[in-house]
Nucleic acid binder design. Structure first.
Lengths: 145, 145
DNA sequence: CTAAATCATACTATATTAGTATGAATTTTG
DNA sequence: CAAAATTCATACTAATATAGTATGATTTAG
């Protein structure tokens, strides 16, 4: 029941791109340094975000990435599902075609459904913008003291 | 973010023992047959439940297992945490000693905390008794039609 | 004593995780 | 134009987790 580094890093990348967005393209190297993540691993992760259109890229020297739309468009759930796959706690909930013949009489399935709903309710109701705002409040707060 | 077979089977074993509880001891072989789970694998799982005192065992011929207390005493959360380990979505939440130095400024941590709470709220509020009742209602319903 | 059961532990095959490594393709810049 | 800087694509690897199997010791009823 753990979220892997792939998913967690992807969220941090999106937040990093949002926080450092000036319209310019940001290099993987910079993000990796700021976030303390392996450059090469980050390349793979950001490539997933790129293919999904969550970020835009420019190749070649002075190339890089920027967040595609406003941070309010990206929920944590979208990013996690993209990178981690389904957030459902059991495979039975993943596809319409359940291979399990027990589903009809499976009392536990209801619990997993409840659990899936609870998980989705959280991750689908926090956006990168929310995280960005909290971050900015935190920074503002740290100066005023 | 999946619950493994170990945890899911453990819940099913507890429900099976609750549903078939007559005070007699029930053999692994019977549970395995009813639940369609490998006997040997089930032995390992029920052994965890036994060591934790969730079930009682009698060794030797005519031995077996029975649920230790009333089914209302066992939440899904207890069983999953015992067999799966922590249900926290990230390791940062697992021990007091966070190895991560980013925690102070980690905006994502708040989301993971919310997620952990949501998960715990579900699994800690469903007991084996609840599942048992639903099962009995279902069976009663299927007869009356 | 024997059969039936739990108990304990070692082993195995597969998949996943968390990266590294290599190099091609593209674009700016000197 | 050449070199450097960058993304893009893919293959590889080490470590760990998952989902069991296998072997056999221990215990108890009959």
């Amino acid at each position: 029941m753990k979220i892997s580094t792939k998913g967690r890093y992807a969220v941090r990348v999106m937040l990093d791109l949002a926080a450092n967005n000036t319209g310019e393209y940001i290099k993987v190297k910079e993000i990796a340094a700021r976030q303390d993540i392996s450059e090469k691993y980050l390349e793979q992760i950001i490539s997933i975000l790129n293919k999904a259109g969550f970020v835009k890229s420019v190749r070649g020297a002075q190339g890089g990435y920027r967040i595609a739309k406003d941070p309010s468009n990206y929920t944590i759930g979208m990013i996690l599902r993209l990178t981690e796959g389904s957030l459902n706690p059991v495979a039975c909930l993943d596809d319409e075609v359940n291979e399990c013949e027990r589903c009809d009489t499976c009392e536990t399935l209801e619990v997993w459904k409840q659990l899936a709903k609870a998980i989705n309710d959280v991750v689908d109701n926090v956006t990168i913008e929310d995280l960005l705002e909290r971050q900015q409040e935190r920074i503002a707060g740290s100066y005023s003291i």
